[in-house]
Write a protein that binds this DNA or RNA. Sequence first.
DNA 1: GTGAAAGCGCTAACAT
DNA 2: ATGTTAGCGCTTTCAC
Lengths: 358, 358
Amino acid sequence: MSEGGGDRNNVGRPTLRQVAAVAGVSIKTASRALRGEGYVAAATAVRVHDAARQVGFRLNALASELRQGGTSNLVGLVTGDLANPFYATVAGGIERELRARGLQLVTASTDEDPIAEQDLIDALLQRRVRALLIASSSTDHTHLADEAGRGVPLVFVDRPPVGVQADTVLIDNRTGAGDAVRHLIAGGHRRIGVVADLSRLATQQARIDGVGDAMSDAGIDDWRELFRPDAHDVAAAQTTVDQLLDMPDPPTALFTLNNRITAGALRALQQARIDGRLDARAHRDPESAARKLPALIGFDDFELSDVLGVSVIGYAAEEMGRTAARLALDRLEGVNHPAQTVVLPTTLIERGSGERRP
Amino acid sequence: MSEGGGDRNNVGRPTLRQVAAVAGVSIKTASRALRGEGYVAAATAVRVHDAARQVGFRLNALASELRQGGTSNLVGLVTGDLANPFYATVAGGIERELRARGLQLVTASTDEDPIAEQDLIDALLQRRVRALLIASSSTDHTHLADEAGRGVPLVFVDRPPVGVQADTVLIDNRTGAGDAVRHLIAGGHRRIGVVADLSRLATQQARIDGVGDAMSDAGIDDWRELFRPDAHDVAAAQTTVDQLLDMPDPPTALFTLNNRITAGALRALQQARIDGRLDARAHRDPESAARKLPALIGFDDFELSDVLGVSVIGYAAEEMGRTAARLALDRLEGVNHPAQTVVLPTTLIERGSGERRP
DNA sequence: GTGAAAGCGCTAACAT
DNA sequence: ATGTTAGCGCTTTCAC
């Protein structure tokens, strides 16, 4: 009755002790052999490995990590929505960088809810993640201040920290947005409809600031009349763009401030084309009731943007993930300078839609 | 020298013992208060909570879970590529379902490498995940057989297990693919180019089988002459389609067997259109050197497929994730019937590209 | 080369 | 309502 262990909780999972018993060695020797610590006779090592295989032993990482210092091999990533291809790509970059050092990524999505975000951060910290990467939906991170001091490297990705000093990787949103607007203005546009996501998001705010910069420089001071913030999902963006198109004096160009909004705008434009409200060749036929197809630039590159001929403000999303991971890894290796902010550049990619004339 | 603990490994992280000391209670009382177990005087509870906040206490989930039975609150998901929007959507469904029960998702991508897959599965099992969901890139899962018996619910997602009995959620690939081909044939096509991903993948094989069903029924026995397997990425698919288009007697329709291949095909078609090799109106002008744009149906729906007017074989990807999670949760709650396989239906979504005539 | 004992941080069992 | 003791599975001394 002493063997077998019973099926209390850890249902039949063999422990090191059992492996040792089967191999006829002490528990410590079994541990040494399995971890390849050396100082184990070759023959003994073989016996232990055989025993382990035989009973189906698998090291308990919980116990192992607890003993070693209470910290896991996990790195946490918190995002608003992992199904968003942008974050999925960032996560891919992080993961690849971590794998090279034997660390594993744990992801958690918050649906952009600051409360959920806090809960998930707590859960990850309780799990003793080695480092924590956050694409935050929240506007206040002061509660993370003492975590940062406790040796858990904290890296903010895509959205900057508020109320804490921490390593950060950002896109140059302001310049990128400015570039888009300058490009449209250079193309002859003055009436530019700007559609944005929730303006409480810092990235959106930065992009809006960039829009303002370029508009001011061009002397377009009433641009806010064609500014539509807070279109948070594809459907809202589609409706918003639809309304812009139906204005008595509609914009001749659109600038959409993230990938979801661009998707919504494309839907609206296509629908308008189908309805005959819009036509790329409208100007050839002054009798036509249809209006001319507006120019379009989208912030964020996206799959098939080339096929659709959509000009975008692009950047290296995977590189963003890699950079964030590296910042965290550097801290883990003891690098100890003040918080760093890495700003990644954007590129205007011309594919046709941004080059249409008024 | 006894207080403070030193900064050995767990750098300054307070333990329950320290909270108890600050609150002036025993460690067990502190535990009870923080876990809300009850049987603690209200005043004591307050003191403990204050102390915890004061010292910045955070429960060590490793220790807690080890003590409770050696199993974590994590559920593992292994996929070939989380950046693929299909898997990202599935993961979203899983995560939402798990969150409702206080479990957390750990994801790991394998880049479709069976070796990496095995390593990651091992790592997750060592971490004592409660359940393991796998969209496997491997063709043999016999090594998972004893895990399945050890109380870790195992669910195969999107791709079926080989060599183990386990719960599985699949798409009805065969029927879906057959539907696509039947639709094209009904539209008058006989020369249908079929472009597939790696044929070692079971999903691809099932889709190919479905293609074969429909072709045979229509008496098209030489379809394999226009069959192109093993186009594993977008670029390969683009090249492959390009070659199909340039055949002396090219296919009048294309069926692409997953979302990446569809993307490659769209690129090829668009490029051919730009080059003047292809024109939707070619049949109106018999003099034209351009050929007629082939019909196209893609397996897997994708973002903006509606804007592009691409007909697809779609299905509920998020639901797939939810179903997989539920199967695992049922097992955790003790449900104990034989391995179940859930097959989700597909739908042919007509958006124009699949309805073009030969 | 190998083993015995102690303890990582926490909670279950049994006191009181 | 609170405290004491033991121990989860492992690794770290330190002894042999």
